[in-house]
Design a binder for these strands. Structure first.
Length: 276
DNA sequence: AAGTGTCCCTGCGAGC
DNA sequence: TGCTCGCAGGGACACT
């Protein structure tokens, strides 16, 4: 599932594809509900002729800055994928493409999404959406994190995954950060000592940076799985210590990892290292 | 304020 | 081999 490291990887790969500077010649909407704004039928006319000025990430949002007054935001949610189709390959119509942008060099930027949870927005002011997000975990001072964490009395894991609290963390990296910090996901955020909160801060940043370094986490081989825009899978799966490791020995103490539900989400912990 | 339930979707793995 | 079934999950929203 695309979380901060996967989305960052997508943005970097799109830049490497040379999208910045190209013009969007047309847009085709194959699944209207994938377009959150404007009205789907108005997207093609509204975006036609815009030049791509820049690509960036905020939380799990991909931001495409355009030469016109509006900018494009894309959220991949669970199974969304962006890829660049070469000019020579015609559109097949047999993919999961929901929105396709034709580019001035003949290639196409395709938003593909089997489960249709992902969304694209073309909006005059992206900050209306992005300002709801909490701070970026990799650009957040430790003291601020510790303060924000202990100022609340929330169950730890749902708080880490709350995009208004911190932007970009999802189920995989929440489990990994808590495992690395040796803290139980059901602890209350205000029960953490300053030392524990600092440990969680370091663990969170370590697992996110490692995820980026490894080009994200790809879990399986199917269509619903994460791939870079150029098609390669990320290789962070082999570095996971908790997520999806049910029954496998904990890397620290060899106790089998167990799966539990926290806030209706599958959660993986070492019952020996992470005590309530 | 925090937590729970529901909805949106459909591929895929497990079980038979 | 081929079928059915339920899980997976981010985020918006309605409730308690």
């Amino acid at each position: 599932m695309p979380e901060l490291p996967e989305v960052e990887t997508v943005v970097r790969d799109l830049r490497a594809c040379g999208l910045v500077g190209l013009q969007i010649m047309s847009a085709h909407v194959f699944w209207p509900r994938s377009v959150a704004a404007p009205a789907p039928a108005r997207l093609p006319a509204a975006i036609r002729g815009n030049q791509i000025i820049g690509l960036s990430r905020r939380g799990k949002f991909i931001r495409v800055d355009l030469s016109g007054k509006a900018d494009l935001l894309i959220h991949l949610r669970m199974t969304g994928r962006l890829y660049v189709a070469p000019a020579e390959r015609p559109a097949t119509g047999k993919t999961y493409d929901r929105v396709v942008f034709a580019l001035s060099d003949g290639r196409r930027l395709c938003f593909s999404d089997p489960r249709k949870f992902g969304r694209v927005w073309l909006v005059d002011n992206p900050d209306v959406l992005l300002d709801r997000l909490g701070p970026e975990p990799l650009a957040l001072p430790r003291a601020t994190f510790v303060h924000r964490l202990t100022a609340r009395s929330r169950t730890l894991k749902p708080l880490l995954m709350d995009q208004a609290f911190i932007a970009g963390i999802g189920n995989i990296y929440a489990d990994e950060a808590l495992w690395a910090a040796q803290i139980h996901p059901q602890r209350k955020s205000d029960s953490l000592s300053t030392e524990e909160a600092a440990r969680l801060y370091r663990a969170m940043r370590t697992v996110l940076r490692r995820g980026i370094r490894n080009l994200g986490t790809s879990l399986g081989a199917g269509h619903t799985n994460f791939r870079l825009p150029r098609g390669v899978p990320g290789r962070n799966r082999e570095h996971l210590c908790a997520y999806g490791q049910t029954g496998l020995p904990c890397e620290r103490c060899h106790t089998p990892i167990v799966r539990l539900l926290v806030g209706q989400r599958a959660t993986h912990i070492c019952p020996a290292c992470q005590r309530l």
